[in-house]
Design a protein around this nucleic acid. Sequence first.
DNA 1: TTGTAGGCGTTATCAA
DNA 2: TTGATAACGCCTACAA
Lengths: 330, 330
Amino acid sequence: MANSRDVAKLAGVSISSVSRAFREDTYISKEVKQRILSAADELGYTPNLLARSLKNQKSHIIGLIISDIDNPFYSIMTRIIEAELKRSGYRILLSYSNENSEREAEDLSLLSSSRVDGILFTPTSVKNRSLVNQLKKQNIALVQMYRRGYTDLDSILVDDQRGAYLATKHLLQNGHRDILLLSVESSISPNRAEGYRQAMREENIPIQDHLIMHLPFQTDLRMTIYNKIKETQPTALIAGTNTIGMDFIKVCKEHKLSIPDDISLIMFDDVAWAGLLDITTISQPIDYLGLSACRAIIDRIEKNKSGEPIVSVLEPFLIARNSVKNLYLR
Amino acid sequence: MANSRDVAKLAGVSISSVSRAFREDTYISKEVKQRILSAADELGYTPNLLARSLKNQKSHIIGLIISDIDNPFYSIMTRIIEAELKRSGYRILLSYSNENSEREAEDLSLLSSSRVDGILFTPTSVKNRSLVNQLKKQNIALVQMYRRGYTDLDSILVDDQRGAYLATKHLLQNGHRDILLLSVESSISPNRAEGYRQAMREENIPIQDHLIMHLPFQTDLRMTIYNKIKETQPTALIAGTNTIGMDFIKVCKEHKLSIPDDISLIMFDDVAWAGLLDITTISQPIDYLGLSACRAIIDRIEKNKSGEPIVSVLEPFLIARNSVKNLYLR
DNA sequence: TTGTAGGCGTTATCAA
DNA sequence: TTGATAACGCCTACAA
């Protein structure tokens, strides 16, 4: 593979001129630049970004750790982030943590060694404190998305509590009282239950703690969900993620339960198929989430190197379709 | 950020010992290694992978260009690829081409400059011949997935023709004759129509060319699909991708058409929601596709540097659900 | 088993 | 506007 020395030789100039020919805002005559460019073309030369990064102490690469790619929510976000970062001249080193904090640790440490300029991630826990500290010391920008694990880092969040509140309120307004909340088990995002409780309190409905359930992160939850429904006999259900929603719908199909005739549903995440199945959802502003995260990290990298952590909270909203039965209309 | 020299100084050894302490299969005494490791720990030192890559002429990074991330098919594949490459010590530099060959060109050239060890991609066209040649000259391994654009590169394919054949055959066996094939417009994968024709010929059904339609790559195809259905009045439809399938289902909802009572459907890609809606699908072996692609590229990188292009073709299969009406049972 | 020195391909500084 | 040279941080002969 040809390097700048080869090009310099062929063009009859110095190696530093070659360097200049391949960068902006640099003094070089048109004529020389032209000669260098054609020499480079002849040799198939492209500047080596590895060497450039090493020299500049800047890789123009951002690590992205996605916690659960099977969730369409995160794949849409990934697309948005990729596009936005590309616009600003950054590229993505991708990995998936699978909601597993040890994998997250490996990823973080690899990104640390790779000298990325920043890391965008959804923390799975707060177990990787020391790694985070190391990254900070290294001056690698860190931005958390969707979950605020480490309070000293920038965070772009969605108000989950409000989402749960909206869902619960909507169900209450349709006459539901026995509402099952199926949320995800997580040490760092326990807000949904609170939104649920708040809505209940506002309507003076006694809160039944056994109707609030936190599910583990795993693929097939149908058994668990079915048993819980059998046991608690709710008239409505709030699914904390689209994967929980999907498993619930499967349960309904398998046991001939009709939505909303037998049981009503509101699901978090307005994924594409929710419209197909006419499901009322809590829509999270994925695009803003992605965009804000990109802006935040680029800002950290290019301007505001250090400073107080910035937290922005985005508002979810309810999209009403036909998966909630109005119990007052009987 | 501390470097190996700093660690060497603190541990009272030479810089080369530090290097050795951080690699396998190297001569170093336990005692010295231990001292180095704790010195490194104290300074928060991690080997700089950028420098290592530059020196070793090997980045352990593979470029992945995904053509359409909104398609769950590709996001699942991305997950599989990430996991498999990680197992082998490679990381992913991700980008999305959006089925746009100019973006693909940018991505390829950036990856070329980044000196990745290999590139996994789904070619959008064959317009980037010269870039591909440059990459080959650079000794960057190239593997195409899903589409065989450049015949001189390794390819991991799915037998689309067979998929279309299976779908058509299944519909014919259920008494359908007027079958609309909605495929994607692409210069490099025109096989579906052929599978359709083959099945038709086998049953001696005259082929109606206006029932074969190639749609452009874009988001909302509902209008086009509706008009085509109106015009051709088919009893069944084959959707070449899940996005086409989704748009078709939306059309049916909007115009109160029932699947399968008014019109039958077979869709390519067995995405998660297909089961929810009871749709008969042509399932593409995504996991094998991803795994094979990873094996192929690692093989190219680590063993079989040059050699004849390898083409492997995987078989799709039909998953029968309830979106096809049996016209013989009237 | 350990250390020295040169080079991987750039860019920044300084001088011409 | 151009060129020489010293880093950037690591690895690897080769020598000790």
